[in-house]
Amino acid sequence: MARAVTPQRKALNTAIAALIGALIFFPIFWTVLTSFKTETQAIADPPVWFAFDWTLENYTAVNQRSDYLLHFWNSVVISVGSTLLGLMIAVPAAWAMAFVPGRRTKDILMWMLSTKMLPSVGVLVPIYLLFRQLGLLDTRMGLVIVLTLINLPIIIWMLYTYFREIPGEILEAARMDGASLREEVTHVLLPMAVPGMASTVLLNIILAWNEAFWTLNLTAAKAAPLTAFIASYSSPEGLFYAKLSAASTMAIAPILIMGWFSQKQLVRGLTFGAVK
């Protein structure tokens, strides 16, 4: 399709795309902008655009709320922890299904997917009661366990679709060359699957970081990640736009950056390989 497009046409397309892109992105832009204003400027009418006293005081204030760093750290521990734990469980399973497929492999994969369709609210009560019983309420450990289990099917599926693209002959060659099963996986399969694993990890961290059902329902103060911490700004006494903006900016920035890097893999992960 190497056909010439007139520059005018191209410019028009660009202008429309820029306009729509800016509109959709605007709430994020406005949040970031507001985070640098004073509280008064944040609610000024008419709104101030750029001509305000840029300040970092909101960031300082949010960070001084003794708990902010704790919540940030909770988010990191929970999302990274559940991802790594999930990976450790999923790699062997994905290896088995991709390279030693049996008659039931397809059924197992579909069944794993079906567990993802179980609505969380359907098991809210028992999980809540079990966690209370086991002392896991409001612990990072508890959330790591739950998020690992919810995202395990996605991790297995993504790894499976990546592994399937690796020719089995290469693993057989390793087997002929005397590699044990563990060596076959660590020396040959995993290094070859690095790009696929990286996207799996990235997508999963994003999903876990933004998870907002279990994190809201199973935590109170101690183990609350940023999703729950930000939710505390919904009460009227927390109504400080500039500080809310600063806290929000810090909460979404890392994931926004990761997300931009993983656009393509996102499609594959979220559609279970149905769209590549």
């Binding site: 020719p167 002959e169 290469i170 002929m176 005397g178 590699a179």
Partner: peptide
């Protein structure tokens, strides 16, 4: 397979793409 003392050359060559030629040959 590894204990049979046989070496195999595959149709697709099945080289380890992340290893140099030297490492490939050294692997067994």
């Amino acid at each position: 397979p590894a204990k049979r003392g046989l070496a195999m050359v595959f149709q697709s060559y099945a080289l380890y793409p992340h290893m140099s030629v030297r490492k490939n040959i050294a692997f067994p």
